[in-house]
């Protein structure tokens, strides 16, 4: 896949990478099981810091999109389907909206729990 980063963008480089991987998984360009380039390799290719790539990979791992194994690098999780990615995107949107309204994460969780109980 093609990775593009713009250092002049307001979005952090780690976020730019994470969004591109997320979109690629969502549209099927990155199939489950596909290995991503080693962080050092991708960092050298884009002339960015390796820790920036590792931050992006860690973010995607936390979102349940990537799995990272010692010695094997990062790969797309077998269960990382388009639906999972969509859920992560919606969760991000929900958190962003809550931040705008001044609602904390614990309150958001309570709200989700309540809605889940009523559903």
């Amino acid at each position: 896949m093609l990775y593009k980063v713009d250092p002049a963008s307001a979005v952090t480089i780690a976020d730019q990478l994470a969004v591109q991987v997320r979109v690629a998984v969502a549209d099927g360009s990155l199939a489950p099981g596909t290995r991503l380039p080693p962080a050092r390799e991708l960092a050298n290719a884009l002339s960015i810091n390796m820790h920036t790539v590792l931050r992006a990979y860690a973010q995607l791992r936390d979102d349940g999109i990537l799995e990272m194994r010692q010695g094997r690098g990062a790969s797309v999780r077998a269960d990382a389907a388009a639906g999972t990615v969509r859920l992560v995107e919606l969760a991000d949107a929900l958190l962003a909206e809550a931040r705008k309204l001044g609602v904390g994460i614990p309150d958001v969780l309570i709200l989700i729990q309540k809605r889940g109980t009523h559903a």
Binding site: M1, L2, Y3, V5, P7, A8, T34, P37, S47
Partner: peptide, 15 residues
């Protein structure tokens, strides 16, 4: 070419 902005970096990988 692929459109790349000034200062924008691009890299393509496949296995």
């Amino acid at each position: 070419g692929v459109p790349l902005g000034v200062g924008e970096a691009g890299a393509w990988f496949t296995t």
